[in-house]
Amino acid sequence: MLEIADLSAGYGEAGVLDAVSLDVARGSITALVGSNGAGKTTLMRTVAGLLPVKAGGIVFDGSDLTRAAPHDRVERGLSLVPEGRLIFPGFSVEENLRAGAIAPHARPRLAARLEEMYALFPILKQRRRQPGGTLSGGEQQMLAIARGLMSCPRLLLLDEPSLGLAPAVAQSLFETIVRIRGTGVTVFVVEQDIRSTLEIADTAYVLENGRIVMLGTAADLLEDPQVRQAYLGL
């Protein structure tokens, strides 16, 4: 569904990603794991169009997105939930969700989609009139994900969704990701919590210093001695 080929990108002169290639299969949960500074967020921002591509290409559902503007990518069914959530603190929960459906293709489905999101995240319905900035960290992450889903994406990009969450909250978040895949949305997730991510993912890639150093089924990587030693501390 998403094919990234020999992608290089970064900030200004400094290259962060060095010829990264990966595929996200339709209907899968695909994970990209790695330590701090490996280039995970840079990859997500580049796929969403927030950073320009230096070399290589991005193909989504058969159409070339390498040079497409961020709003074009949303229009074609790609949605990024950015690192740090970036919810709109002064908007109420419902206004945040409505803003998520601002793309022209999402507008007609707004009302139905809002109900779907409230069914998926009942806590948001309880808090619908509350300013987004007053929610707890876990609730804000739920809000950010629901807002990202409001545009009815076929591929959801999650950038470090468990960042800063208490372990129990993070655990329920990973369960939520599985439920989202169950609604027919393909999920591409970038994470530092490697064990929890590999437990829910189908396929995984390991990124180190801007390069893919390992790939395979998530189950295989969980058993891989190198991964266990370097990332799981076993």
Binding site: L50, A69, H71, R73, V74, S79, L86, F88, G148, S151
Partner: peptide
Amino acid sequence: ENEEAAETLGID
């Protein structure tokens, strides 16, 4: 509220 988030939601 947040320009980068606005961009990821498909706002030109």
